[in-house]
Amino acid sequence: MADKCILLDHGSGGLASQELISSLFVKHLDNPTLRGLEDSAVLERPAGRLAFTTDSYVVDPIFFPGGDIGMLAVHGTINDLAMRGAQPLCLSLGLILEEGMALDDLERIVVSIAACCRDSGVPVVTGDTKVVPRGKGDKIFINTSGIGVLADGIDISSKNAREGDVILLSGTMGDHGITIMTRRAGISMQGRLESDTRPLHRLVQRLLEGLPGGVRTLRDPTRGGVATTLNEIAANSGLGVELREEFLPVRPQVRAACELLGLEPLYLANEGKLLAVVSADQAETALRIMRETDEGAEAAIIGRMVGGKAGRVVITTPLGGMRMVTPLHGEPLPRIC
């Protein structure tokens, strides 16, 4: 498909659309449910409650170190399901393409989506493609929705955090956000910066099995970073959060880039990390379980839930001083996911 690009015809529903579907989507994403190409996918009804989520992806650039927009779209939606304790079952895939997008780029993204689906065991079972005229979009926008199933008794929510609970972060902060920001600013850094995009559902299942009843809250700190997500947990639980700055894991190259650009890792997006609030007596077990996995190898205990300071996140600095950690405010951030 060298030198070829997306035409308005590819979204018309006619012959060109069908060709694109069979030569690209069915070829790479094939599975028995998708193969029928009917108007909707028909699924067997699983036992248990369902979790249902949707997210749209507009990241610029569409390819970046460590991933691409397709990977984000699969991982992001799987992770949103996992954060409620659900086992992801299947995804939908909606694409909005800009006329003139290189077909090679599209194929690269579809191949990447297919690889992520295989790796995570979560298939795309239904999809849609539209094309907008040149200048009305930006190469490609993706929407994925996902359905997951919750085992009996699972109740994971930011409301459930209790006083004295311990907060864990499954790895380093800011890798995705800083990778995109430095790409956009045209800055190349010594030391490799790479997005951390990855699915977290297996890590979540390990935690749920290993700590029956002990996991209160799971959240993935994407846009707005760890700072904003912790503020949401504090607000929803009616408790305060206390952090220790020296416990926060950050890669040296991410820290260096943050110094250069005047950014704080606490506010940078992550695409493959989770915050877990667990009961204090199970915190060490939670840390051990996380560190036994690839996803959580660099996990750390970063703080705890406290009473009396509802909705506030406070951090103790290395010198023993304190400051507030407020949520991200509407800064003119570039499109990072």
Binding site: E264, T316, G320, R323
Partner: peptide, 9 residues
């Protein structure tokens, strides 16, 4: 000064 917590000490 704020970020380091100096104001609080």
């Amino acid at each position: 000064i704020f970020r380091n917590g100096i104001r609080s000490i």
